[in-house]
Every structure is written in C-alpha cells, then in structure tokens.
Simulated assay, not measured.
Amino acid sequence: ISINQIEETNRLFISPVMLSVVVEHIFLLVLVTLISVLQNAFFATKVEREGKEHHANTSAFERVSCANRNCMDSYPTFLAVLWCAGLCLNQAPAAFSGLIYLVARQKYFVGYMGQTSQSTPGYVFGKRVLSFLFLMCIVGIFNLLLVRYFGNDFKDTVETITTAASALLLIP
C-alpha cells in the first residue's frame, strides 16, 4: 500500500460533506463549550486581579478563590452531561440547558464574591440544570438501548418533551 492510497482512503472516509454533517450535529455543543471556556478565563482573571490588588490572604481574595475552585470542581461534570445529552438525545435543548447553567454559574460566582449566602440561589439553580442534563443523558441512552434491542424508537417524542421541558428551567 502506498502513501497515496492511504491518503485517498482517508479522503473517502472523511469527506467535506460528511464533516459538515458531523459539525452540524455538534455545533451548538461546541459553541456552549467555548463560551464556558471564556467564562473560566473570566473567573481566573478575577482571582488574579483580586490577588494583585489586595494581599492574597484577605477575605475577598479567599471568597473569589473559593468560588473559582468550586466552579472548576463541577466543570468536568458539566461538560460530560452536556455532551452526553447532546449526542445521545438532542443538541438544542442540551445547549440551551448548558447556557442556562453558565448563567447560574455566573450568578453563583458573583454571589460568592459578596457573601457566601448570596451564592446559594446560583448553586441550587445550577444543580437543577445539571440534574436535567443528567436526566437527558439517561433518557437518550435508554432510547438507544430500546432501538438496539427492541427496535422501538421514541427519540422524536422524547426530543419534543425535552425541548419543552428545557424551557421550564427558566422558572426559578
């Protein structure tokens, strides 16, 4: 096998059309992930700025630093359920829920900078969004198992329900 044959085989497997179809199915998830990266950079900048403006052992620095650590501790869980829900079920409600989670995380971070009790609403709201994304993952995986072993596909019905239910996340 020559190098040209290998390159031709790779071009056949990953055609531009195929690549655009794949990107179309994950575009919203990628967008939410990049926004979350920018938010992480914002949080890190706040911690760095607070450390430079005040001494690193002040209570304000401790609160900002703790809020950043707490947000970073839940970040891998957020990414896992976001992508699992988007890939196994539907990317639109998963991405919408992801944006709502980022708003809740921002509310948590800003609330923690004031007093730790002000961060509770953001924490509870973020926890609810993560639970919804986790439920989407479970339903998506269950539907894939139903298709595989029983031939029943309820994906359209479940997508309709999750799309409508994701709007309910806006209710406090």
Rank of each mutant, 00 (worst) to 15 (best):
L82G: 06
L146P: 03
C71H: 05
Q115T: 02
K155P: 08
F132Q: 03
C84L: 14
V22Y: 14
G151R: 05
V64Q: 15
G86Y: 05
D153V: 14
L82E: 06
A104Y: 12
V81P: 01
R11K: 09
L135M: 12
M113N: 01
F78L: 13
M72H: 14
T157R: 09
L168M: 04
V22Q: 09
L79T: 13
F43A: 03
H55P: 02
L79D: 15
E159G: 12
C137W: 12
E159Y: 04
E53G: 04
V30F: 13
V129Q: 11
L19E: 06
G86I: 07
L133E: 07
V23R: 14
I6P: 00
R105W: 11
S74A: 08
I141S: 10
M113G: 01
T58V: 06
Q91S: 12
P121M: 01
K52W: 02
L146W: 09
A95F: 09
P121Q: 00
A60T: 07
V64R: 06
D156V: 10
T120D: 00
V23A: 13
Y123L: 02
L145C: 11
L145W: 04
A44L: 04
V158E: 10
G98R: 10
M136R: 06
L89M: 13
L146F: 11
T163P: 06
E50W: 01
I141H: 08
A80C: 06
I138A: 12
G126W: 07
N4S: 08
R11N: 03
G114T: 05
M18Y: 12
C84H: 13
R105D: 10
N152K: 13
I26H: 04
T116D: 00
Q39P: 02
V103D: 03
K127M: 11
R63D: 03
F142K: 12
N68Y: 10
D153I: 14
A85D: 05
K107S: 10
I3T: 05
M18K: 13
V22L: 13
M136E: 07
R69D: 06
L12Q: 00
A41Y: 09
G86D: 07
L28A: 09
E7V: 13
W83S: 11
S65E: 03
V158Q: 10
P76M: 13
S15N: 01
E7I: 10
A165S: 09
I161L: 10
H25P: 02
T45R: 04
F150T: 07
R128Y: 01
Q39T: 06
Y123C: 01
F125D: 01
E53T: 02
R105N: 14
T45Q: 08
S74G: 11
L28Y: 06
G151K: 08
G86K: 07
F154S: 12
G122P: 06
V37Q: 03
P93R: 14
P16Y: 15
F27Q: 05
T58L: 06
T45V: 11
L102E: 05
